[in-house]
Amino acid sequence: MKKINAILYVIIALLYLNTSSLLAEESQASTDNNNSESRSPQESDQEYVLPKPQASRIESLKSTLTLRQLDHQIQTLEANGESFLTLYNPSLTRSTEGCVILLHSDNEHPDWPDAIGPLRNALPEHSWCTLAIEVPDIIKRAAPVQTSPSENSNNQESTGLPNQANVFARVEAAMNRARTDGIEQFVLLGYKTGASYALAFLAENPEAGEALILIDIESPTALSDYTNAQKIRQISKPTLDYYVNNNGSERFALWRKQAANQRTESDISYIQIDAIPDRVTGKNSKQLLIQRVRGFLKQNTTQITQQKQLPNIKKGLFYKSPVE
């Protein structure tokens, strides 16, 4: 009997301790909630730091260029009330053919090593200045994936590309900057989604550029490939369409080719090149890309006559005086 009483006493004690612990936890949670409700909005906001990947990416780029002693290329311009970064390389020759405006792809930066960086650094050696523009991110990192088109996506499909007004304003600001150096001829060059912006800009501003270069063009998710391809019909300037031909891009490339063939100006050059052969030759594919772009520019833009005068040669340096 005593053993039974002892066991009952232990059970009652344990139940009491558990009940006290639960009550204490509820009291603490209630206190925490009351404290959080009493905090000011500013105090609450200070507890959370939202990531800004594009800002971090641009700051890292600026730091890298500074370490390489290339910070003189960094220029900050303004468009639509926002500041944005550009990388400006003037022509390295006696005269300048014009300026190439470069638009990088989504979640990249104006010196991205795949295509934009090599081109912006190489073309100044061949009489072209380059202005690479910071393009706003389309897809925000850590953003939820949409399984069905949202109302916002439908609006973007009907009005154009995401961030289109801001990107167009940045292109115009970059051109105005180049004009201060006497530049009069412009070429639009874009890589992947940046190529879609370049295509859309020249389609809406046909006299703004003398030529268009599309490299591995990609359509943002808010814009179908077919709709994007039809903009080629509005381009009345020479166009280089340099792309990687794979299973996902064959149909898009065919639509672009068909749109080019439907243009009313049949004499306007449209060159579509499959980049695969350039990339499997074992040679430097970036150097081949530069050569493709250089050749296109030389054949399809107004070229300034650049003839260097032969140096005056003193024959006395090469001929001995007659023996007396």
Rank of each mutant, 00 (worst) to 15 (best):
I11T: 12
I12K: 13
L15C: 13
L15V: 08
Y16I: 15
S21L: 11
L23M: 13
L23F: 07
E25P: 02
E25S: 10
E26Q: 13
T31K: 15
R39T: 10
P41S: 07
Q42P: 03
Q42C: 00
E43W: 00
E43G: 00
D45M: 10
L50M: 08
L50K: 09
L50C: 01
P51S: 11
Q54C: 01
A55C: 01
R57D: 04
T64A: 07
R68L: 13
D71F: 00
H72I: 06
Q75D: 05
A79N: 05
E82I: 07
L87V: 08
L87I: 15
Y88A: 09
P90Q: 07
R94G: 05
S95T: 15
E97C: 04
C99E: 11
I101V: 14
L102H: 12
L102M: 14
D106P: 03
D111Q: 09
D114G: 07
I116C: 05
P118F: 03
L119H: 04
N121W: 06
N121K: 12
A122E: 05
P124G: 12
C129W: 01
C129F: 00
L131H: 06
A142L: 08
P149V: 11
E151M: 11
Q156V: 08
E157G: 08
S158I: 12
T159M: 09
N163S: 10
V167E: 04
F168V: 03
R177L: 11
A178E: 09
A178S: 14
F186H: 06
K192S: 15
T193Q: 02
A198P: 08
L199G: 07
A203M: 06
N205G: 06
P206L: 00
E210G: 12
L212A: 04
L214C: 09
I217M: 11
D225M: 04
T227E: 07
I235R: 02
P238S: 03
L240G: 06
N246G: 11
N246I: 12
F252S: 06
A253V: 06
R256A: 01
A260S: 15
Q262H: 12
R263K: 05
T264H: 05
S266A: 14
D267S: 15
R279W: 10
K283C: 01
N284F: 06
K286H: 10
L288C: 06
I290S: 04
G295N: 13
Q299E: 15
T301D: 10
T302Q: 09
Q303P: 09
Q303K: 14
T305Q: 10
K308F: 03
L317G: 03
S321I: 10
S321L: 12
P322G: 01
V323Y: 03
